[in-house]
Design a binder for these strands. Structure first.
Lengths: 171, 171
DNA sequence: GACGGGATCGCCGGGATAATTA
DNA sequence: TCTAATTATCCCGGCGATCCCG
């Protein structure tokens, strides 16, 4: 099999050992291991040019179910819909969520693992805990910004544009 | 400072770009980024990863890496790209940078080792500190001038024309 | 810190363009 | 005066959080 184009990076010894210790099977490359640990879609072989539809299909299952179930429409405030969406997003992919949640505004940070952290980064941010997760979000925003935050988050988590659009518009 | 013991691993191009795109601050090493993404405790001394002092002849290595890593494309404003470039240029060759940094306009001076000096030489120059260096730059300029400043600086530092062109166009 | 939701409006950063100077 | 280079005002879009309303 022709080699994929590889790049060289340097990692410290401890990290190197950590990666090595996560080998699943003999011959697994550092790249493969990292992809698994980072939850990046294992873009199979060098072959398939079109983006992974399978991955996109899986990632989004829970979100689509939420949309279709009418659960969102049942909520009667933007905040509730916002919180529900975040909760579903977290549960669908905690690792991606964790990595994506460092989005922030000019002064405020939008997500944190404690109420205090959000309170400290702005005035009257009205933090709320995201159900079923260790995270908190800022809540003192207009609806436009709530849509925006969800859109940013989903984009960083790797969701398809169409789905992002549907979800943020449903707030 | 003695270098930490480093190991080299190979990652595929996409993963490489993914890692680069998760840079939090300029100069963050691949190791640091991976540790953060993998949620490994950051061991002490992660703060300042000094770039390898470019020996004569290799001038441009760090700059090329910046270009190829996609780190610039990840920034979303001309100012950020401008600041990143300056930071990399400084680290690649502090001495040459120091000598080259006396370029100036008709009234304003473009670089200085203090905010006050820049403020004193013009109105509303909006100085910013260049990360990882003792220098400050003027920031209240249009994009054309930012390109210009970088081009002048790089020329004075002795970079090849082709590279200067690539870098300034990438702002 | 205790009413909650969130629209409205004030502020700020980015940087194009108008103004100025050589 | 006309042009080219440089300055820095000022507009625009985005963000914050006060404050009004149900």
């Amino acid at each position: 099999m022709p080699e994929k184009m590889m790049k060289t990076i340097e990692v410290d010894e401890e990290l190197y050992r950590y990666i090595a210790s996560n080998t699943r099977h003999i011959g697994e490359s550092a790249s493969d291991i990292l992809r698994r640990l980072l939850k990046l879609e294992n873009q199979a072989g060098a072959a398939a040019p079109p983006a992974a539809p399978a991955a996109a299909g899986v990632q989004g299952e829970g979100v689509r179910r939420m949309l279709d179930s009418g659960a969102l429409a049942a909520q009667d405030s933007a905040i509730e819909r916002f919180m529900t969406i975040l909760s579903v997003l977290y549960r669908e992919n905690p690792v991606a969520f964790a990595q994506a949640s460092d989005i922030k505004g000019r002064k405020r940070i939008y997500f944190a693992d404690s109420e205090a952290a959000l309170l400290a980064a702005g005035n009257t941010t009205k933090p709320r805990a995201i159900e079923g997760s260790p995270y908190w979000v800022i809540t003192n925003t207009n609806t436009g910004r709530k849509r925006n935050i969800v859109a940013q988050l989903m984009a960083a988590m790797g969701y398809a544009h169409g789905l992002i659009e549907r979800v943020s518009q449903s707030i």
